[in-house]
Design a protein around this nucleic acid. Structure first.
Lengths: 202, 202
DNA sequence: GTCTATATTCTGATAGAC
DNA sequence: GTCTATCAGAATATAGAC
């Protein structure tokens, strides 16, 4: 038996720690979570956390990086494609975000809450505003195909309608998780249509 | 000189503490702020904070209450009025929120971040869904004046378009505060028009 | 009411045995 | 690699002088 890896009952300790950290940091944020919480959740000893990651700060940086990459990747993969139509891109942005966030519902609030203290700041606006997607929009405005909307506001609208519900989940009490999912499924269909309607407003 | 109050250079100590706590908690959240930070910001001694408020938790509860009341008040004052039209209500919600949040830009992220741990939970959804405003909408749908939109989604859209930009401020880097304000001024005008357009989408 | 000093608990991190 | 035990500093809260 040469390169056999690990036993059952859960991966390497290192991986278990990262998983626990991802879960807890993303749920509650950097300051609310103590290293002891992570160790307990991971089912390992507190000392081991420092053995592998040296400090809470460094472990957090890993999770922050993971989350921002996953969060930005959706935009990155879509907006700069030169062969996709405006309508298709909007529809893809909405669908891909809602699908991803349904699996990671705490991610947006995590991102927004930690954007200040983050080193390699997230560049959502920059990414979208300098994209080929924005060129397409400006072209469509010039040719009169859509109304003269401020591109920054268009971008803000797509993102707001898609992401905000996940951020506001906890103040939207009364919705069961099932109802919330149904609502988001409906929004996947409707948001592109609503955006389209906006693009006709003078 | 009978009921003369206090000296210049800043109110009572109690008030100064509350003001410092409001500023810091709202900006950075419960866990990120230490009682020492508040004492320092208020320009008073640490012991005095406990003398007046007994614990960090109790002081925080006051700020939480203040913020949620101010946040909900806008909705409360508008949606149940029986003499105001749908269009006017939407316009008032948008304008009043943007005006208030321009003065308290950190409030929405504070509310969303602390909604979980809050005792007397915020009831945004409940308030809006059971309001006279919703009756008006349902009436308008029935009479065919607007498309058959899911009322929960309509409410989500109004709130998303209005509030999300304040939450995402820090990931929307590159905007100066001045540019941000201009953007929000434009949104005050446009959001009601965009909502109106949505309400025609089948 | 306001302060200084201090008690107490919490928390991040390390030393050292296995 | 993993654990137990422990340290050092931070953070909340209180005692007691003024």
């Amino acid at each position: 038996m040469a390169t056999v890896k690990k036993k059952r009952s859960g991966e390497s300790a290192e991986k278990k720690i990262v998983e626990a950290a991802r879960k807890l940091f993303t749920e509650k944020g950097y300051y609310a979570i103590k290293t002891r919480d992570i160790a307990k959740e991971a089912g390992i000893n507190l000392a081991l956390l420092n053995y592998y990651f040296r400090s809470k700060e460094k472990l957090f940086a890993i999770i922050m990086k993971e989350n921002t990459v996953r969060f930005m990747q959706i935009i990155t993969e879509i907006v700069d494609d030169e062969k996709t139509s405006i309508e298709k891109k909007i529809s893809m942005l909405v669908t891909n975000y809602i699908d991803m966030l349904s699996l990671n519902p705490d991610m947006p609030l995590f991102i927004m809450s930690h954007a200040q203290r983050d080193d390699q700041r997230i560049r959502m606006r920059e990414k979208m505003m300098s994209s080929f997607f924005m060129k397409q929009i400006q072209q469509a405005i010039k040719s009169g195909k859509v109304a003269n909307i401020n591109p920054a506001n268009l971008m803000m609208n797509i993102v707001s309608l898609t992401i905000f519900p996940f951020i506001a989940r906890h103040v939207m009490q009364g919705l069961t998780p099932k109802q919330f999912n149904e609502l988001m499924e409906e929004r996947k269909r409707m948001i592109p249509l609503w955006i389209e309607a906006m693009l006709k407003v003078k």
